[in-house]
Design a protein around this nucleic acid. Structure first.
Lengths: 343, 343
DNA sequence: CTGAAAGCGCTTACAG
DNA sequence: CTGAAAGCGCTTACAG
């Protein structure tokens, strides 16, 4: 049995006593074959364990049955939720998903895009923040346009600066809502803990914070913004820094849940009670947020749906003007936020 | 610019005034081209934005640059950690990763395997528990063997019943250790909360629990086993059931972290203190386990490394007898376990 | 309904 | 070092 090459279409055809053309039609379920012949071909294919070569098919047919998915990092729950949504729709439609990490690095992202194009995916879903660096965005846009012009479909999740269909979480509204929530509880000495300001997601969320501050007549400069990696460890680092340089704060407004979780962990190790000594809020509502102790007040983004919606959009015929689907960001009040301590 | 088809190798060749053979050699960095010519071809390719067609290349060259990854579900942190490890190595080696969900359903898994084979991946990494159902395992094994015989490489993660290279977490040892830990704290009225017993992972972990029980001379029947989905919600359901039918328990030994998180959440909502009223332990040590409150006592599996190791193994030439790499499972004592309450 | 043939875009012996 | 040609395994007009 060793080295038994996989059976090819020609083997099936031969075995069935028909031409490859007929065998091809039979197996693809296309018309133009008598059902008797089709039946026989299918049976033979089945019994021989025939599995068509996607490369040959795609080369000959000019079709593609795979979608490329670019995310920052799959171990980050925000992205794994999105990926899960994409996978679900792909699976329903019989599409394969090729996944790449961008690592939030525009250079790497560019390379990944080119790889996907080389693999002739029919669709590319790019998830994750865009970059404020115009140079970086330009080269990405260039690659995407080329792909689109060659007939590919692109949908972005969470980035609005490209001329592609996009699924956009209401980042600014969400951040405004959570800021309002803290202000409403009576907090005035708030600090923002965030990922790199070079990310458009951060810029958008920060804009929501500022909008709410402006609304309440609070000078933006009253709210320090501590920047660190957009991760749990980043949240720890930022919170540590915060505690040192701004010991008077009563609330930490983290711009994603990961950082909020890091903040909670630091506060716990410092024996600071949440929310009595310090309120903490997140953003995204990753699955674990509700199960933390205290459960995390955050802004819910329908991540799985965002992934599903993105692929669905990509599978629809393109329109003249890019479509934008805005996904709601809803405040979820839980136990990590409360009135500020006196003093 | 509309409809501008992607440039092909022949376009590059023409533009450079060489044959496609030469262009091919130049771009692939193979020998047999003067460096001057190679340089020129590369420049032209670059300027025209040439991206080779992987399908054509793979069809002509018989090579594959992609690896298939089968996991239960990417939104499950155990699997997203593994996936992350696989992605890292793939990225270093210039390989693409095609990801599929099995949903812990052998039928779906089989279909996904066939899809990967159709896509002519060179490597398949199957992560996640095997199935106790021999019929299911047989068809999976059949498909994998066929793939291997055709020159493909397969590595399994966490399943030992296949004749393939495998990366195996020390499930039994880990479960034995955590059971011993609870017994050592003085617990005698323990309950196990677990996913389906049809999964070999569950069977293996349960075996570790029993080994420890036997060791301590405690009848296995003293420890009820509550079965539910291997998820957070499953953990909630199982714990609810437990509280009702076995109200005397002092420790919940969950066979994965997800279920343990569900258990913590139910106990919190019932105002039961952990670990004073009830100890809780998990298994896997997903990233959030350390950040829970109380932090979760669990068994650490090096999930990312398991993913890395699996792909590395697959990329090495096969050996006569399948390789088995056992990954250590280490007890991590945190705050969710303590001595039992009196009574 | 069925088949012979061209062609998808590459790579790789085989000559020179 | 370079090129003409065969071939990878399919699909799809084009004839019949």
């Amino acid at each position: 049995m060793t080295g038994a090459a996989a059976p090819r279409l020609v083997d099936i055809a031969e075995s069935a006593g028909v031409s490859v053309a007929t065998a091809s039609r039979a197996l693809s379920g296309r018309q133009g074959v008598s059902s008797a012949v089709a039946e026989r071909v299918k049976e033979i294919a089945e019994s021989l364990g025939y599995i068509g070569n996607v490369h040959a098919r795609s080369l000959a047919g000019g079709t593609s049955s795979s979608v490329g998915l670019v995310i920052h990092e799959v171990a980050d729950p925000y992205f794994s939720e999105i990926a899960s949504g994409v996978m679900r729709v792909a699976s329903h439609r019989g599409l394969s998903v090729q996944m790449c990490h961008s690592g939030r690095d525009p250079q790497i992202e560019l390379r990944q895009l080119r790889t996907l194009i080389a693999n002739r995916v029919g669709v590319i879903v790019v998830a994750g923040s865009g970059y404020l660096d115009p140079e970086a965005e330009r080269s990405i846009q260039r690659e995407l346009s080329r792909f689109t012009q060659a007939g590919g479909r692109v949908v972005a999740i969470g980035r609005h600066q490209h001329a592609t269909d996009a699924v956009l979480p209401a980042n600014t509204d969400g951040a405004q809502a959570v800021t309002r929530h803290l202000l409403g509880l009576g907090h005035r000495r708030i600090a923002v803990v965030t990922g790199s300001r070079g990310l458009t997601t951060v810029a958008d969320r920060l804009a929501g914070v500022h909008r709410s501050l402006d609304e309440a007549g609070i000078p933006r400069t009253d709210v320090p913004v501590v920047e660190a990696p957009f991760t749990r460890d980043g949240g720890k680092a930022a919170t540590l820094q915060l505690l040192e340089h701004h010991p008077d704060r009563t609330a930490v407004l983290a711009l994603n849940d990961d950082m909020a979780i890091g903040a909670l962990s630091v506060l716990r190790s410092r024996s600071l009670r949440v929310p009595e000594d310090m309120s903490v809020t997140g953003f995204d509502d990753v699955p674990v947020a509700a199960d933390l102790s205290p459960s995390l007040t955050t802004v819910r983004l329908p991540m799985q749906q965002m992934g599903e919606k993105a692929l669905e959009l990509a599978l629809r015929p393109p329109t003249k003007r890019p479509r934008r689907v805005v996904m709601p960001a809803t405040l979820v009040e839980r136990d990590s936020s409360g009135p500020p301590r006196r003093g």
